[in-house]
Nucleic acid binder design. Structure first.
Lengths: 196, 196
DNA sequence: TGCAAAATAGTACGATCGTTCGTATAATGC
DNA sequence: GCATTATACGAACGATCGTACTATTTTGCA
């Protein structure tokens, strides 16, 4: 990895932290550069525009999610165990301690939901892929005989993801000490309702 | 109502629209005043600071939620009918067409979840009250014999609210045409699992 | 109708925003 | 070890941010 790529990684890493707390729009080239000990213009040269910086922050986050949640969970046995692995990793992703503002993908979802642009387009596509991965895991669980055959996999994905959103809210905004229990309880009931 | 209070209402109304799309931090005194045909300083004088403007936008939104969702639903008969009324109104609130960026309370939740301040404090307190209202409605449904006696009302509130968050995501970000069906389906299954 | 008070406008401020440009320094390939 | 390219810097740009002052208009009441 060349020097430039190395710096770019450092930048995106810190940028993700800032964006998780202050949003993609609250992420500022001035603060970002000074926190990293770089000059504004030097940092700027890596991206060429703030739009591009935001986009790359999103892309990096999606990739980290892919490698930190989806792929490891796919090593779990097909069916319910894999679904459980997905949930466990998803929850701890939402609960990342090194992200001062929580899950950047949730933050970006709300921030971009009605703001057209490349950032939104990318986020939507990535989000669709995540939901599709959940639905596929449910489909596999049906094939494996763990889930009832008449289960709607897309509905399962909706239910699953809703729980993670509720967890995020209880944990980060309300700081409810029982947030983990609540999410776990909801998930177990979801599983029970899906079983064959 | 004096002239000042009238203008303040107009301001807060437009401010809510802007904040719903661009966030409380993206809400700017310059754009806000020019969109309303006011001078920056004239508008500013109504609030004294941006913090105060943000706070009043939040307070107005919470009050509108109270009068548009909670109170009307409380006129429905105790028990399951009231729960249904809450859900119906909650869903159409999240789906407000006059808010270009969707529910401002959800947006603010994600924006403020890790940013200390009066705005966050107020939002948390208001959010706790909303969740408490849900739990109370569940408790009443238990008393009425509609829900099973061993149901955990707070868990019900978590499940209920999670569905509305999932709905918001499906509707506004993914633009899933089946978002309404998905939320409705999840809600009906939640109800079924709660019945006595 | 006149007058104090309330409401709005005007102007200016320092700070910071994203961005451009020219230049210096550091890393890389031969 | 040198030439070339990649990388970073410094200064400056116009625009806009929130906020402070002062002046002007408008309002509501005696």
């Amino acid at each position: 990895m060349g020097k430039g790529a190395e710096t770019r990684e450092r930048i995106l890493d810190q940028a993700a932290r800032i964006a998780s707390r202050d949003g993609l729009e609250g992420l500022t080239i001035g603060t970002l550069s000074s926190e990293l000990g770089l000059s504004k213009s030097g940092l700027f040269a890596h991206f060429g525009s703030k739009d591009e910086l935001q986009l790359q922050v999103l892309q990096a986050a999606v990739q980290r999610f892919e490698y930190g949640v989806i792929r490891p969970a796919l090593t779990a046995p097909r069916g319910e165990p894999r679904i459980r692995a997905l949930f466990d990793r998803w929850i701890s992703w939402v609960n990342q301690e090194d992200m001062p503002g929580g899950c950047i993908l949730i933050a970006a979802s709300v921030e971009l939901d009605d703001r057209p642009g490349l950032q939104r387009d990318f986020l939507v596509q990535a989000h669709r892929a995540r939901v599709a991965a959940l639905a596929k895991a449910a489909r596999i669980a049906i094939e494996a005989g763990h889930f009832r055959p008449d289960l709607d996999p897309e509905q399962f994905a909706f239910d699953f993801y809703s729980i993670t959103l509720g967890y995020n809210d209880s944990k980060r905004l309300l700081r409810d000490p029982r947030a983990d229990d609540r999410a776990r309880d909801a998930f177990e009931r979801l599983l029970a309702s899906c079983r064959a």
